[in-house]
Design a protein around this nucleic acid. Structure first.
Length: 504
RNA sequence: GGCGAGUUCGUCUAGUCGGCCUAGGACGUCAGGUUUUCAUCCUGAAGAUCAGGAGUUCGAAUCUCCUACUCGCUACCA
């Protein structure tokens, strides 16, 4: 049977990069095994719904090249794929569990529960709604049947809680961690169905995974503690449970905590795939796309945080990843995100792209500076500067002088490279360049070298002063390539201006 | 507090059933080389007594036990 997996985010904000990795692993697993990946939106918490989050999630995956076979925005025969639209479907399942003795109605108010917890806390204990305490609470196990019926009919607020069997070892088979065992006495009676008529994650998740015929649940480690509940729910319903794989967490670069939105702001790297404007707070969080990352680089960087192909290969295309992916190569320990490594991946992917492929990434910067040059010229510039780029946003800084003459000259460079008589020498060289018709890069190089040698000049001084005149700084690609691309007319203008301005 | 999971260079990791590990690779760092310059690139180096301890064994990063630390969960959130 071909596997069916899902990615099931909650639309409570932008998609966290850890969630992206979870989705990526699901995607690779599905593709590798000829399976199906579906996107389900788990919006059962009406209070945390955030406008635009769902559209953001879909756009982010589009950008990353992670595609879904079924789900929100695509459709499929197991829809709807938004849990809020499946609301009516869950209640009968909750009732079924109550009928079968696997769950019960509880009428305790949040205030009462709070008071219980506070009371326990004051005695340095913790209150847990479980096999020991449920007999003292207000629920269908303690109330007479008529009273329960009366309350339900009167429309009293209630929740449905799972009723763990007493003192039972629950075994969870995890594809990554092996067998995890926990005794039911330690677990509390989780709410399955809320008083607002919505299921909690636990109920909705199990019901939907079953109805959608999910075969493998690949999700974050933060779900491991509730896996026993899920296993028990499958048992209670009499359904076959899917296989579980709990992924290691993505950790912050410093310290050991879970990577959070705040860490990104604090350490200067994105935690989200795309930029996000929070509609409520008005805050903006940076995204990988807007920070100049290539989606292939983000995917490649992310996939290696917790998985490896079993050899030394680090640069892999999506197709290679699909071929190489396997759950048993996923590591158990959390991985720290590294900005340096992310930067390196991006650099590698920029290097691997042609000028024509890179061009669209730089169009916004060119337009912002009012540049109108031929595609051919721009792409020649790209070829010359692309190995100096870590992010697509570095382009303008590295290439601006190809489009605009420098208006200022780096004082440090001038101090070192611009001496008495430099202007005159540059004028001589400029004239030599003008005289080469048609212009020939190699010839220009040879002539200038000859001039330097014949006059016993310092090569570094001469060439760097020319560079400063053309570029504005003592940096950049090979000088004669710059001259060739820029054209001797432009060289002439820049030399004249530099000689004038600097000699003042 | 309770429960669960994790623990190999600064970081990501290799290390399938104990011997080929005097622990390999990558990023980063440092040093050389290339470059008229900067960046790239190339070469090399430093860097983990495999969390600690005890045991099993001829032999353990790899098996067992104990300890420590870290993280996660502990909501009518997911």
């Amino acid at each position: 049977m071909n596997p069916r997996v899902r990615f099931a985010p909650s639309p409570t904000g932008p998609l966290h990069i850890g969630g992206v990795r979870t989705a990526l692993y699901n995607y690779l697993f599905a593709k590798k095994n000829n399976g199906t990946l579906l996107l389900r939106i788990e919006d059962t918490d009406q209070t945390r719904f955030v406008e635009g989050a769902e559209a953001y999630i879909i756009e982010a995956f589009q950008w990353l090249g992670i595609t879904f076979d079924e789900g929100v925005g695509i459709g499929g025969e197991y829809g709807p794929y938004r849990q809020s639209e499946r609301k009516a479907l869950y209640k009968p399942y909750a009732e079924q569990l109550v009928r079968d003795g696997w769950a019960y109605y509880a009428f305790d108010t949040p205030e009462e529960l709070d008071a219980k917890r506070k009371e326990a806390e004051s005695q340095k204990k913790t209150f847990q709604y479980d096999a020991n305490t449920r007999s003292e609470m207000v629920n269908s196990l303690t109330l007479p049947a008529e009273e329960v019926k009366r309350r339900l009919e009167a429309g009293d607020h209630f929740v449905v809680r799972f009723k763990y069997p007493a003192n039972t070892d629950i075994h969870v088979q995890d594809l990554i961690r092996g067998e995890v065992v926990i005794n039911s006495n330690l677990l509390d009676d989780k709410v399955l169905y809320k008083s607002d008529g919505m299921p909690t994650y636990h109920l909705a998740n199990i019901v939907d995974d079953h109805l959608m015929k999910i075969t493998h649940v690949i999700r974050g480690e933060e779900w491991l503690p509730s896996a026993p509940l899920h296993v028990m729910l499958y048992k209670a319903f009499g359904w076959d449970a899917p296989q579980f794989a709990h992924l290691p967490l993505l950790l912050k670069p410093d310290g050991n905590g879970k990577l959070s939105k705040r860490d990104g702001d604090r350490l200067g790297f994105p935690v989200f795939p795309l930029q996000w404007h929070d509609p409520k707070s008005g805050e903006t969080s940076s995204g990988y796309r807007e920070s100049g990352y290539l989606p292939e680089a983000v995917v490649n960087m992310l996939v290696l945080l917790g998985w490896n192909p079993g050899n030394d290969q680090e640069l892999m295309t999506m197709n290679e990843l699909i071929n190489l992916f396997s759950i048993d190569k996923i590591s158990k320990a959390g991985a720290k995100f590294s900005l340096d490594k992310a930067k390196w991946f991006n650099h590698e992917y920029i290097l691997g792209k042609s000028a024509a492929e890179l061009h669209p990434y730089f169009t916004p910067a060119l337009e912002a500076h009012g540049v109108h040059c031929s595609d051919e010229y721009v792409e020649k510039v790209i070829d010359l500067v692309k190995d100096r780029l870590n992010f697509t946003g570095d382009f303008w800084e590295q290439a601006c002088y190809f489009f605009e003459a420098p208006t200022e000259y780096d004082p440090q460079a001038l101090k070192k490279r611009w001496k008495e008589g430099t202007g005159e020498k540059l004028r001589v060289i400029d004239q030599m360049l003008q005289d080469i018709k048609p212009f020939d890069k190699d010839k220009a190089h040879d002539n200038v070298m000859k001039y330097i040698q014949d006059n016993e000049l310092n090569m570094g001084q001469v060439l760097n002063s020319l560079r400063i005149a053309l570029v504005g700084t003592a940096r950049g690609p090979e000088l004669f390539s710059i001259i060739e691309l820029m054209g001797v007319d432009e060289v002439h203008r820049r030399v004249e201006r530099a000689v004038e301005v600097v000699n003042l």
